[in-house]
Design a protein around this nucleic acid. Structure first.
Lengths: 342, 342
DNA sequence: CTGTTAGCGCCTTCAC
DNA sequence: GTGAAGGCGCTAACAG
């Protein structure tokens, strides 16, 4: 009984039918007689037959697997998106292969090859870097590109289907919120260079400053990389800036948390001395001290929508590349207030 | 050129060799002549041949895929473990299918079937619930069980290979730390019922109380479920307890964060009024206000070790079921101190 | 309603 | 060093 695995032939022999009938009884039960179906089911039970996914995939030329490329699975921002992807996928009988690329382009490429190598039917991209097949400009014809949906960012010079929010508008609203509170020296801590989100949120920040009639200054814009530590470091630099900023808009919540921690460590009170606004609305944002004002993204919905677009695309080769823009919301909590006297 | 995918036959035709030679040139280059190899490589380049993983898997009867069952991918505790798993796996040419089971037993079972259905070569379990094939006591013979490694928890009544820390000892040390600071009323917020970690950390807590000569009391033990919110709720109940506890040992960091947030919301100061100790040492623990005293688990190493055990097991059917116990460390930060006057 | 047949694409003997 | 051939397990097309 132990040893060689059970195949459809074993089941067929025991049930006294052909392998084709076993296959039908399992995948298309309506088309076989009740008697036969029951005999097959009994044989399946007896043997513990589980099918062979490799053989089925080869025959059907589909894997029912979707690869999701995530730059950093430890980033809590992604987990709810993944959860949304997962729920839609499994409801349609698809599996999700989550791959942490660690922002390593080589790894991204390896896994992009999954689709070409028939290890997956499609790919969801969360890192805003186009995969190999989109690199050469001449070969980037959409006709040749495998099923792909880009999440959260829109790749410049490509028209892959996209699900995202309007980062420029959201960043503008977050910064405008600080300006409306009366802040005149508003700093910004950016994401990593080369990231599309970084550019868009910076643009929103600058647009808000300009609309509020505030001067922007290079010293007010500090580079970060979305990590807690980079938020701390950026604040250390900002504390040496003149005029001292009374408010900081951080390109994500983790840097905002680092920023607040560092402000406290330097004896500043948030928001009395410095207001801080984040971006993403991680779960921790509401529990931090003070609770963080931030931009909420519909993370689960982003995941769900992207997977639905993927399923549409899989069912219909010639689907148009849609750009789906979901709503965001500024969540005002206690980390932002009118500036104190200085 | 677009349309049907390139197969090994296309490459063979273009290179003017047989498919067998193409296969050899690709997987066993030493055995073909340099001339031939170069011709094949050129043809591969021209065509963009990527192989077909399904066909290869079917032929070789292995998928080089390992499923990892995670109860909740949003829990940051798991991400570094996953990262460790990933790095060892990809170094050996294995892929990791991360599945969020959402603590849903049905889903766990579905994915446990992956191994039987040849969709994966082995399985890593992070949720401490035995999969289907271990449920029936008679069929649970080890000989029949597919390659499986259990992380972080040891399944009772099973002898699957395990990688974990000594939770009882670590919880005892965390509690003893509070007792040594002079606390006499030490509360505990537990994990969810039925979880093995919950039981082990509770046992360590009780053992420390007993060794310190402190009475344990039902009112001091509040149920949680590892979530931030459950930490908040538990504190609300503890604030109505007499005698009021001056210290709380939480079964994980997230509940500790919730506990501190709720204590602050009720006007208590941590640690002056109440000391709080967590478990796990999440990244946020060091940035919280106050920085959290907690137990550090070697998360990355847990992941790496478990994947190595899996690879060993895959390479050698008859490997003994090892129980690998890794070291932990109590990290004392500012959230715990001697009790104030009451 | 059921059986027979013919591969899916690849790798691995077995010959030469 | 290379080619021919068979088959991994399954399912879709075609007969009956």
């Amino acid at each position: 009984m132990a040893g060689s695995p059970i195949t459809i032939q074993d089941v067929a022999r025991i049930a006294g039918v052909s392998t084709a009938t076993v296959s039908r009884a399992l995948h298309n039960p309506g088309v076989v007689s009740r008697q036969t179906r029951e005999r097959v089911e009994k044989a399946v039970e007896e043997t513990g037959y589980a099918g062979n996914a490799m053989a089925r995939s080869l025959r059907r030329m589909e894997t029912r697997m979707i690869v999701v490329l995530v730059p950093d699975i430890g980033n809590p921002f992604f987990s709810e998106i993944l959860s949304g992807i997962e729920s839609v996928a499994s409801a349609s009988g698809y599996n999700v292969l989550i791959v942490d690329t660690n922002n390593d382009p080589a790894k991204e490429r390896t896994f992009a090859d999954y689709v070409r190598g028939h290890q997956a039917d499609g790919m969801l991209l969360l890192n805003g870097r186009p995969p190999y097949f989109a690199e050469g400009s001449q070969e980037a014809g959409r006709r040749a590109s495998p099923p792909l949906v880009v999440l959260c960012e829109r790749l410049p010079r490509h028209d892959f289907p996209t699900v995202r929010i309007d980062n420029v508008a959201a960043a503008e609203a977050a910064t405008a919120h600080l300006a409306e509170l009366g802040h005149r020296h508003i700093a910004h801590i950016t994401g990593p260079d080369g990231n599309i989100l970084t550019a868009e949120r910076l643009e929103g920040y600058e647009r808000a400053l300009s609309k509020a009639g505030l001067a922007s200054s290079a010293a007010l814009v500090q580079h970060g990389d979305f990590s807690i530590d980079s938020g701390r470091l950026a604040v250390r630099r900002l504390l040496e800036t003149t005029p001292r900023p009374t408010a900081i808009f951080c390109a994500n919540d983790e840097m905002a948390i680092g920023a607040i921690a560092e402000l406290k460590a330097n004896g500043r009170t948030v928001p009395a001395d410095v207001s801080v606004v984040g971006f993403d609305d991680l779960q921790i944002a509401g529990c931090y001290d003070p609770p963080l004002t931030t931009v909420r993204q519909p993370r689960r919905e982003i995941g769900e929508t992207s997977m639905r677009m993927m399923l549409d695309r899989l069912a219909n080769d010639n689907l148009d590349a849609r750009d789906c823009v979901l709503p965001w919301k500024l969540v005002v909590r206690a980390s932002s207030s009118a500036p104190g006297r200085h």
